[in-house]
Design a protein around this nucleic acid. Structure first.
Lengths: 247, 247
DNA sequence: TAACAATATTATGTATACAATTTGGCGTTA
DNA sequence: TAACGCCAAATTGTATACATAATATTGTTA
């Protein structure tokens, strides 16, 4: 029987538990700092303790939970943490963009990322902004690959893991449609500039554009935060941000 | 009985297995790409499969092993990977230094890092360069804390995990003592400049100095690589670097 | 002889019983 | 009454048996 996907990555207990636990945490199902008890957690997720512990180790690596003596607690994030995470993603993406620009690049290396650019142009032109988030993620993924180094690509993926740090975080806000469309247009301008800079070997420009591009994410989070202050649990990506600073 | 350290972090099976397995891998005990079988590995490390699997998950996070279908293989690194890892550390440390400079800094925040500076000055003046590596690590740790954000501090630590990426990698080379001492003197100049830049709020300078400081690591690795080409297994930090590019 | 498929073997994935440690509470004592 | 230490309960750490999936091998067929 031709089962396309290998079992390990999709339907294993570890993977199921990881996915469900991750989305529960991101959704703010537990207040920051909550202790996660293995036995009741395993029961409610319908897995045994062994795959649950694997999932917890993975989530520790992703930064969503942290050890506290024995066992794990849900990690708490301050709004400053969110800014720092976005800043870091921008800095690392900038490094990748610079390295991509500084190495000899063939025309064919840029064909697929240019196709994504065209698609995003169309999405914005048609006001079909629902499809934007996915295409934006693809663009950033392609960008990460242009430097031609797996280690760097992995670090970019890692820097995009936290829910408020991802390139497409907050890209579906419906509160202020005109501000949001402006953000899309400016962001796409950054995208075009990035590809052009890489094509021309302009490393410093590519770096600067990637960093400035990440600033859009900060602006988005800031708006979302100001609009929902005192009620941030309503915003999916802000659910696990506590108003106070964490120690 | 006053056991100072908590058991979990030092004498647990997981921790023991992790430490031993890590040092075996770093020492190049297995050729890159080797499959790590759980049962024989567990036997040779005198732990059961459960803590071994925890250790493997941790090592995957550290980047030393990677999944390959079922189970893990020893990750292979190219010399370019080493350069990228150092570059990344420099970039992230640079971001931390910049943020430290850009935030209001009290005099007292800098007292402990300045003490480290004085100690390193003494070590270099006395030619007691054996103590340099440890003090250098402390300096970089203090630097990571000056930005005042745990998330950033964690990322710096992470970027310093790979054996060739650590701040003090190659800092005990005995092949070319005079070149090495030059490297120390220049590096310490960077250290002084970094603290001064942070003190004066010169963010761009702090960033640039941290990046340039990391370049010393690249230079060291390059020398070690050139000297031992075809025989890199002799150099501890280069043991798991394959001459060829990895796919 | 080469390629495919069935099967046997070996590996990892999972569940659970047990051990060791942590944690909270209670009682005693200064 | 507060603090210390001890004890008990609960929780995580570890080992191992079993289930399931991956891999190698062997036989058959074109």
């Amino acid at each position: 029987m031709p089962s396309k996907a290998n079992n390990k990555n999709n339907s294993s207990q570890t993977e199921r538990g990881l996915r469900e636990l991750r989305s529960l945490i991101i959704a703010g199902h537990w207040p920051a700092g909550s202790k996660l008890r293995e036995v009741p957690l395993a029961q409610s997720l319908n897995v045994s303790r062994t795959p649950l512990r694997s999932a917890l180790l993975k989530l520790e690596q992703e930064g969503l939970v942290e050890r506290a003596g024995a066992g794990y607690t849900v990690r708490s994030f301050s709004i400053e943490d969110a800014y720092v995470a976005i800043e870091l993603r921008g800095v690392i993406e900038g490094t990748a963009a610079r390295m991509a620009a500084e190495k000899p690049t063939q025309q064919q290396d840029l064909t697929s990322i240019k196709e994504v650019l065209v698609k995003i142009d169309a999405v914005i032109h048609n006001d079909a902004i629902d499809g934007y988030a996915e295409l934006n993620d693809v663009f950033h993924q392609q960008l990460a690959e242009l430097a031609g180094n797996d280690l760097l690509k992995n670090e970019i993926e890692r820097a995009s893991l936290l829910p408020f740090a991802a390139p497409s975080a907050f890209s579906s806000s419906k509160d202020d449609r005109s501000r949001f469309k402006t953000s899309l247009i400016v962001g796409q301008q950054h995208h075009h500039g990035l590809v052009q800079a890489i094509e021309r070997g302009e490393g410093a420009r590519a770096d600067a554009l990637a960093r400035e591009h990440a600033q859009l994410g900060k602006a988005n989070i800031e708006v979302a935060y100001q609009e929902h202050v005192g009620n941030i649990r309503r915003v999916p990506q802000l659910a696990l941000i506590t108003a106070e600073l964490n120690t």
